[in-house]
Design a protein around this nucleic acid. Structure first.
Length: 545
DNA sequence: TTAGGGTTAG
């Protein structure tokens, strides 16, 4: 009964951090947030997981149907996503079930009773993103249901492949790819884009090249589009030299187009080698291809990125003189570029002139100007621009609020920042993890550890957005500043919580917290962390227990 | 996930 009541609370997503007043940990009296962390930490695996997982499903099924019905009449036009509540609860259940054998058994026993669908499965996989082993376990259990009442969609295979590749489990990647084909699902260019990107970001571009060259043997022929995708992946990981060589070697086979040239030009700009980007533009003209507004915008941004303000301005003027199309991206680039370089007046002038030139600012342009004013001028002036955009009928988005909230925090205006967080909700724009992280970071910097922990409590109930790796890293680091023994205990609980949520702590964080706990006589929690770690099948890099 | 602009802060 007690466990059932716990889970019922869990399904409301409020129980873990809903305690108010004073709680206790051992003999130590703690403020409410400490109690909340304690409660969250000690949510153990349920005793009868099958029944409880089904209970989660039943409790949410009706809610999902209601949401599905109401979503069509939602005046905001935003569907809350009929799968959201169910996916949230199933993924919470999976993350909180520590013992892998119990979890496997529970999933195997109950999975056949739940009507799976690709959107639901994909939602759950995304929520399990930070805990690769459990995500793949979930995927595999569904893939081998007996009798086979559900077959994974291509999109779910793509998610699973991405997760396996992210963990650098390359054998699992190829197994999944073969299994995909055995289920009569052809791997798509997207499947290979995912694989190629993971190999490149893992520092294996040559292996990625071999995969690209042989992908037709695995059911997906190469074309210009997949060639461009691969070049772009290489360029975005700062391997433009390799992309250029490939472009020269394979160009005749794929017949490069404007997009190909733009990708390579952008690659040079990303590493601040604008002369090379200009050469690419010259090459494309010589090959009979006309540079597009995208080409010019890439170059323009490249000059700003490289700190070549004079060249950027000259290029901008030249674009005007030659009658190139100056679109909203061009103006946003210039406003932001000059602003972050400290030339706020020039940024403001360009912003003011764009309307006169027949180009309306987008919300991104406003965001660029607001950010610039917050960083290089005054947050009060940024608020004037914010009110102006409201007056003109623009709808601020989460970036608008985040840059403003950061500006207010930077000016130590925490109460006003909190007011804006409330205001976001009124604009149908819930605070996201970046919003909370900004507030937490600045509160920590100001030494307001308790207030920052209470922000974590707000996040942790999962209603708005769960904390991410940054959230935990910032908070744990801050707990080492005051040198208070109680802070070590809190750091230990945070480490425990982050592991339960599937995050892999850095070796430095892990050792630092364990040492802190041992030095302050908190051996019990240190052992608990070690046990949880060894059960999770998830290890901090370079840690072997 | 065939190309370009706007969110932390290190």
């Amino acid at each position: 009964m007690f466990l059932a009541s716990k889970l019922a609370h869990a399904t409301k997503n409020k129980v873990f951090f809903s305690h108010e007043g004073i709680g206790r940990f051992g003999s130590r009296v703690m403020p409410c947030h400490m109690s909340a962390i304690y409660h969250n930490h000690y949510q153990t695996s349920p005793k009868y997981p099958q029944q409880l997982l089904l209970r989660v499903f039943r409790a949410k099924k009706q809610q999902c149907q209601q949401l599905h019905t109401t979503s069509t009449t939602n005046t905001t036009g935003h569907s809350p996503g009929p799968y959201l509540p169910l996916s949230k609860n199933i993924s919470c259940f999976i993350l909180r079930t520590v013992d892998i054998d119990t979890l496997t058994h529970t999933l195997e026993e109950t999975a056949c009773k739940i009507p799976w669908s690709p959107p639901l499965v994909n939602c759950i996989l995304k929520r399990l993103w930070n805990h690769g082993p459990k995500a793949l376990l979930f995927f595999n259990v569904l893939d081998f249901l007996s009798p086979r009442s559900y077959t994974h969609a291509a999109s779910s295979f793509n998610h699973a492949i991405d997760i396996a590749a992210r963990m650098r489990q390359y054998n699992a990647v190829w197994t999944l790819l073969s299994r995909m084909r055995s289920r009569n699902i052809t791997p798509s260019p997207l499947t290979f884009a995912i694989i190629l990107e993971r190999f490149v970001s893992a520092g294996k571009p040559e292996k990625a090249l071999r995969i690209f060259l042989s992908m037709h043997h695995r059911g997906c022929p190469q074309d210009l589009s997949s060639f461009n995708t691969f070049l772009d992946i290489l360029c975005k990981s700062n391997r433009v030299e390799m992309a250029s060589s490939l472009f020269r070697a394979l160009g005749p086979r794929f017949r490069p187009d404007t997009v190909t040239y733009n990708i390579i030009a952008n690659g040079w700009c990303l590493i601040k080698r604008t002369p090379m980007a200009l050469r690419v533009m010259k090459d494309m003209v010589e090959r009979g291809l006309t540079p597009t507004p995208v080409t010019y915008n890439i170059l323009l941004k490249g000059f700003f990125r490289a700190g070549q303000l004079k060249e950027a301005w000259d290029f901008f003027l030249q674009m005007k003189r030659r009658g190139c199309e100056l679109d909203v991206v061009t103006y946003t680039t210039v406003v932001h570029g000059f602003g972050v370089a400290g030339e706020v007046e020039k940024a403001q002038r360009v912003f003011d002139e764009m309307v006169g030139h027949g180009c309306l600012p987008s919300i991104a342009t406003y965001n660029a100007l607001i950010q610039v004013l917050c960083k290089k001028d005054n947050v009060e002036n940024a608020l004037v621009v914010f009110n102006d955009l409201l007056r003109k009928g623009y709808l601020p988005n989460s970036t608008t609020y985040n840059v403003l909230i950061r500006g207010l925090c930077h000016a130590s205006e925490f109460d006003r920042a909190a007011e804006f967080m409330e205001r976001m909700k009124g604009d149908d724009c819930e605070p996201n993890v970046q919003t909370f992280n900004v507030l937490i970071r600045y509160l920590c910097d100001a030494g307001e550890i308790e207030r920052s922990l209470s922000v974590l409590v707000k996040m942790g109930n999962g209603v708005c957005c769960p904390p991410n790796l940054d959230t935990f890293n910032v908070l744990i680091s801050a707990l080492f500043v005051r040198k208070k023994p109680d802070d070590m205990l809190t750091a230990g609980k945070l480490l425990m919580e982050m592991m339960e949520r599937g995050f892999l702590p850095r070796k430095f964080t892990y050792n630092r917290v364990l040492n802190g706990l041992l030095l302050t006589g908190n051996q019990a929690l240190a052992k608990e962390i070690l046990r949880a770690q060894s059960r999770s099948g998830h290890f901090p890099r370079e840690i072997r227990l």
